[in-house]
């Protein structure tokens, strides 16, 4: 490869777009779904910039600026919505909202149990009040 050509940029953005697609479909956290959408937007923006570069005009870059604007608006609104949804159901799980589906669609339930939380380190035990805890002596080698 002499230098990156248009198809290379397009291929990278295709990969980014598809990964965003997978993330949007598969993940259930609302915020990660939204980040996946932003990932797809990045892929599209890369497409625009590459086309601008190889067509030799700047309309694609101007379009990416508008894309940034729209992404900012979208982020503000989506985060406000996510916050409101979190307040209502106190979870970011999108499957809690499946009652918004059409009525004839069956509800999806989770069969497999969640794994147990990883064991955390036990809290330190405080000594009785008034007794100074034993401190390890530091050897002094002056």
């Amino acid at each position: 490869m002499v230098s990156p050509d248009l198809p290379h940029f397009l291929a990278v953005s295709a990969v980014l777009f598809s990964l965003g697609l997978v993330g949007f479909i598969a993940r259930r956290n609302l915020i990660i779904m939204f980040l996946s959408v932003e990932l797809m937007v990045q892929g599209v923006a890369l497409n625009f910039v590459a086309f601008a570069r190889f067509r030799g005009n700047l309309d694609g870059q101007a379009f990416v600026l508008f894309l940034l604007t729209i992404a900012a608006c979208e982020a503000a609104l989506a985060l406000a919505l996510i916050l409101a949804m979190y307040r209502t159901r106190s979870s970011l799980d999108v499957s809690l909202w499946q009652d918004l589906r059409e009525e004839d669609l069956e509800q999806v339930t989770d069969d497999e149990p969640l794994p147990l939380a990883p064991a955390t380190a036990p809290l330190p035990q405080l000594p009785l009040a008034g007794i100074a805890p034993a401190k390890p002596e530091e050897p002094n080698r002056v």
């Binding site: 397009l10 291929a11 295709a14 990969v15 777009f17 598809s18 990964l19 697609l21 997978v22 479909i25 598969a26 993940r27 259930r28 956290n29 609302l30 915020i31 990660i32 996510i82 916050l83 979190y86 979870s91 970011l92 799980d93 999108v94 499957s95 809690l96 999806v108 989770d110 497999e112 969640l114 794994p115 147990l116 939380a117 990883p118």
Partner: peptide, 30 residues
């Protein structure tokens, strides 16, 4: 909206196989 980790939102995926097939198909076509 901090949640402790093994939660429905983070530790489960929705149709991972179909999602991956969808993504692979999309990238293949493009």
């Amino acid at each position: 909206a901090q949640q402790h980790l093994p939660s429905d939102a983070d530790s489960r995926s929705r149709e991972p196989l179909l999602a991956c097939i969808c993504g692979a198909g999309s990238v293949l076509i493009i």
